[in-house]
Amino acid sequence: MRLGLQVPSFTWSNGQSELGDTFAMIAERAERAGLHSLWVMDHFFQIHMVGPAENEMLEGWSALAFAAGRTNRIKLGTLVTGITYRHPGVLIKTATTLDVLSHGRAYLGIGAAWNEQEHKGLGIPFPPLAERFERLEETLKLAHQMWAGDDSAFTGKYYNLERPLNSPLSVQKPHPPIMVGGGGEKKTLRLVAQYGDACNLFARIGKEELQRKLGILQEHCAQLGRPYAEIEKTTLDSIQITKDGHGDTLSPNAAIDLFGSLAELGIDQALFSLRNANDIEAFDLLATRVIPEVEKIKVAGR
């Protein structure tokens, strides 16, 4: 089993003047600890589940490019890019650029977008949900075309590209893994099965609901003739790891048990944000106590 770190907040006690240094330190510590991946949200305003809209929020793809320059091994992705934020041809070019410059470490995390507040605030059109899903599917089709090196005209309902040239092509072959975020059963999980390489579900929905969602994904795969085992199953959680597990924190052993219970469901990679991400102790515990044991855990179905 693998572990990945999400950084959802850039508001730290040492202030904005040290924001870049702190983010770089977290990325470097995550890599040294042995984490498989590093993720940032793709939002322009902070989301209400994390903090006030006015809190510091970095643009996701620029932040990942910065992190790529401070690391060498860790995979890098958005969790996840809203389809409305960028023209799809530009988005695919952006993800390709990160993959090339990082020597093949990019994920393309993508979803239908939801935060109407930041759309209105920055003047970004916010179409109805059904249209956003149609745009998402067109973008997924275009991603596969561009990453295959096919620059023939793309004609869709919403997007028309005369020559979707993508040079250089990505380092990862056939392309950077595409993570479609969300647990919608009729549309999102069907798009994962048809176009994606990874799914992402909230761990907080609980073991039974996770198992049910994965079962639905498996049904979509069967209907489309897609091997279910090809898809990387991931979850997202928010935790705090301390040496003794005081309060609502997790001790290293409790964290290992948590990740092990996810592996029993078939989760390949557990992603989490650390509420004490700028505390070196958390990374020391991950490096010495948690990750070596979690890497030994066999994922069900693998």
Rank of each mutant, 00 (worst) to 15 (best):
N115G: 07
S261E: 09
E208H: 10
G184Q: 09
L271K: 01
K120E: 11
I297Q: 05
L38F: 14
E137V: 00
D257K: 13
L142E: 00
I231N: 01
S102P: 00
D151S: 14
G196S: 04
Q6S: 08
W39V: 11
L108T: 01
T71A: 08
G181W: 01
P227N: 13
N72T: 15
L108Y: 03
S238D: 09
G104K: 04
W61N: 00
H103Q: 15
E56S: 12
A270M: 05
I280R: 11
D268W: 01
C199L: 13
L101R: 05
L285G: 01
A263V: 01
A143F: 09
I267M: 02
L236P: 01
S261C: 02
V40A: 04
L286W: 03
W147Q: 04
E293V: 06
Q218V: 09
E293L: 08
D197T: 07
Q211M: 12
V299F: 00
V50S: 02
P174V: 07
R86A: 07
Q117A: 11
K120Y: 10
L35S: 00
S167G: 02
E208D: 15
F23H: 07
C221Y: 07
E219H: 14
L79F: 05
D244A: 14
L19R: 12
E18Q: 14
G4T: 01
M57V: 06
A255V: 02
R29F: 08
D284F: 08
G206Q: 02
P252L: 04
D21I: 13
A270E: 01
I267G: 03
S13C: 06
A68W: 03
G301S: 08
C221W: 04
G15S: 08
G260T: 10
Y158P: 04
